[in-house]
């Protein structure tokens, strides 16, 4: 690929244009493998371009049949609800350890922090599957309860909506803890102290000073967790029953099982639009850069 201006002889202008060559592979890769495919998906959903056995009449027919079908709306709402509940639970469960880590002076603190990062490196499918060993009919909880004589037949803990949420929370919790931790760790320690010296109780100082100041971390963590949960495909299949599928499962079902690529395209764009709206609203309050950092 020839860039304009690369023929110039001056070393300065060469250096000034070097960034184009350095960026070209990454930008081309992302354009061809992400941006163009997204654009293509829009064109396919409108029937302007066709692939496979998708019906080749241009128009909004595929959109109308999806948007006019309450089934898809119900799935979208349910998916957002499940993601919202999982995020809320993760925030409630994640705050205490984040606060503990940020305020700890223990020499174990570096190790405890490392343990929060460790799950990112451990296989997602193994982490998800591990809950079958805990919640299953012969899992740890049921066997313990039966061993203690509390029950005769196992509780149906697995393959329902709750077990899906447990799996999602287990998956997103480290993201939440880290984001809250970063916000709390950057906090000036003298601020809650100042509140206390002015007569506030520890609890009041926390509620009026520490908690509000940690809201940016809480919000960034919540957004990341929400997006991850709302897009999850594997967790509902492994830990849920047939009724607990989420929106990503619909996309796979339409595209890979039914080979109805045009409907799959509409569904993918619908999910992208819904989550994009959530992100846009959050970005107004947080700034996009912060979200990028939280995601990483």
């Amino acid at each position: 690929m020839k860039m304009p201006g690369t023929d110039s002889k001056g070393a300065d202008s060469k250096r000034a244009l070097a960034h184009r060559w350095l960026l070209a592979p990454a930008i081309i890769a992302i354009t061809l493998l992400l941006l163009v495919p997204l654009l293509f998906t829009v064109l396919l959903s409108l029937g302007i371009l066709n692939v496979g056995n998708s019906e080749n009449t241009a128009g909004t027919g595929a959109w109308q049949s999806v948007l006019g079908d309450g089934f898809y709306w119900w799935f979208l709402v349910k998916t957002l609800l499940v993601a919202g509940v999982s995020t809320l639970v993760a925030a409630l469960l994640g705050y205490p350890p984040a606060y503990f880590l940020a305020t700890s002076r223990s020499r174990w603190r570096p190790l405890l922090l490392l343990l929060i990062v460790l799950p990112f490196w451990i296989s997602y499918i193994i982490r998800t599957m591990s809950w079958i060993n805990v919640l299953g009919a012969s899992g740890a909880i049921n066997e313990a309860a039966m061993g203690l004589g509390l029950i005769d037949t196992p509780w149906p803990l697995l393959y329902n909506q709750v077990s899906v949420i447990v799996g999602l929370v287990h998956f997103i919790l480290p993201f939440m803890i880290l984001n809250i931790y970063v916000a709390l760790d950057g906090l000036d320690e003298s601020l809650p102290g100042a509140a206390k010296s002015l007569g506030a109780s520890s609890w009041q100082a926390f509620c009026r000073v520490t908690l509000p100041l940690s809201v940016p971390g809480l919000a960034a963590g919540s957004l990341i967790c929400f997006l991850l949960a709302a897009g999850s495909y594997v967790t509902p299949i492994i830990l849920g029953g047939p009724k607990d599928a989420m929106f990503a499962n619909l996309i796979y079902e339409a595209m890979i099982i039914q080979l109805d690529w045009r409907t799959g395209a509409v569904l993918a764009l619908l999910l992208l639009g819904a989550l994009g709206m959530v992100t846009a609203i959050a970005a107004r309050f947080l700034g996009l850069e912060r979200i990028g950092r939280a995601a990483a």
């Binding site: 992400l34 495919p37 799959g264 395209a265 993918a268």
Partner: peptide, 10 residues
């Protein structure tokens, strides 16, 4: 920023 399943489908 794009959900994995959307990127996968597209």
């Amino acid at each position: 920023l794009v959900p994995e399943v959307v990127l996968a489908a597209a």
